[in-house]
């Protein structure tokens, strides 16, 4: 996800301090992984440099965190462009999982067990997400659902691969 554009979006609603920005971000988008301060300021200085934000005011106090940032016209345009453009769907063509399966087959390791272990891990994570969803608000639920649907897609792939493992094994070995 582009942190820069997210910052711009947050700043568009109102100018904020760097610290506020981080908090708002964490609250809405970064639940599992809070944003490190370093990355916040690095990003802000990059945005400043490209003229997408400006320093709105500097409040008396110590440290850089007392600077208040606001979005510029160019920044608004950038957010516009970002939101109105479709994201490029990411085709996970070079999946780690696939690589693992092929390698397992090539080296005569039990590929089915590998898939099972992975399935179990996916399911475990899904269970956890479902439980979190249960207690959470709508935003939380939507985030969890997003992950759940992705995991489910992975699982389908795992299932399909498991079902076609013998076929795959023959093919892999004949090429080898």
């Amino acid at each position: 996800m582009s942190i820069g554009q997210t910052f711009l979006g947050l700043l568009e609603s109102s100018p904020r301090h760097g610290y506020d920005l981080k908090r708002a971000y964490d609250e809405r988008f970064g639940r599992t992984r809070p944003l490190p301060y370093g990355q916040v300021y690095a990003t802000l200085s990059r945005l400043l440099k490209s003229g997408l934000v400006e320093v709105d005011s500097v409040e008396p106090g110590e440290g850089p965190e007392r600077k208040r940032y606001a979005i510029t016209e160019a920044g608004v345009t950038d957010v516009d462009r970002w939101l109105s453009h479709a994201e490029k769907p990411e085709p996970y063509l070079q999946s780690v999982l696939y690589t693992k399966v092929v390698l397992a087959l090539l080296t005569d390791r039990p590929a089915a067990d590998l898939l099972d272990t992975q399935t179990a891990e996916h399911l475990r994570l899904m269970r956890e997400l479902t439980r979190r969803k249960d207690g959470g608000d709508l935003a939380e639920q939507l985030i969890c659902d997003h992950a759940l649907f992705h995991l489910e897609a992975d699982l389908r792939w795992l299932e399909l691969t498991a079902a076609r493992l013998d076929e795959l094994a023959r093919e892999v070995r004949s090429h080898g």
């Binding site: 099972d116 272990t117 399935t119 179990a120 996916h122 399911l123 899904m126 269970r127 997400l129 479902t130 759940l148 649907f149 995991l151 489910e152 699982l155 389908r156 498991a162």
Partner: peptide, 24 residues
Amino acid sequence: HEARVASYSDREVVVRDGRVRDLT
């Protein structure tokens, strides 16, 4: 057969070829 539905459970098992497999 839906993983998302199954994720409401405490534990999953998979039936494959007429046998029950515990994935762990």
